[in-house]
């Protein structure tokens, strides 16, 4: 790997400040806990999906900036840790349109049960827990 050319500090200009909320994806989104509308944990943000541009294709001048289309979870965590990439069909998407707010957690505006992300939780709830007595009651 060649050594990077240094940009002279004096050439670095103060950045324009966008009006709204500024999010650095790695700093504020990745690996954050997602809570549903009732505050129930859904999953973590394992990756973020963007609309466009096509990888390695020249971006035309003046092209519209890409936006976050969905937060991803599930098998994508494994590939983030061990490399590779899951097929697009195996990605579990939480569309950005259901995101209600980003703080130290990502709040969703829908119920956890309506999301694909919690299918394992539901499967265990319906197939394992009921076989054990007492699983559906509050603890004493």
């Amino acid at each position: 790997m060649s050594k990077a050319k240094r940009i002279h500090p004096l050439k670095i200009r103060p950045a324009p400040r966008p009006a709204g909320l500024v999010l650095d994806a790695q700093l504020h989104l990745l690996d954050r806990q997602m809570l549903d509308v009732d505050g129930v944990p859904v999953s973590t943000v394992d990756d973020v999906e963007l609309s466009g541009p096509e990888p390695d294709e020249r971006i035309p001048e003046g092209a519209e900036a890409p936006v976050i289309s969905a937060l991803l979870t599930g098998p994508v965590l494994g590939t983030r840790i061990f490399g590779g990439r899951p097929p697009s069909s195996r990605l579990i998407r939480i569309p950005w349109s259901v995101v209600a707010g980003v703080d130290t957690v990502v709040k969703l505006g829908v119920r956890s049960d309506s999301l694909d992300a919690s299918w394992v939780e539901r499967w265990l709830r319906h197939h394992v827990i009921p076989r054990i007595p007492g699983g559906r009651h509050d603890p004493h």
């Binding site: 500024v22 650095d24 700093l27 963007l50 900036a65 890409p66 950005w96 349109s97």
Partner: peptide, 22 residues
């Protein structure tokens, strides 16, 4: 690339505005 910056400042969508790449 150590991070990608987004801004949430467009017209409101359903719950939160679109997150545009800065």
């Amino acid at each position: 690339v150590s991070d990608v910056r987004f801004a949430v400042d467009a017209s409101p969508g359903q719950l939160l505005s679109k997150a545009r790449m800065v």
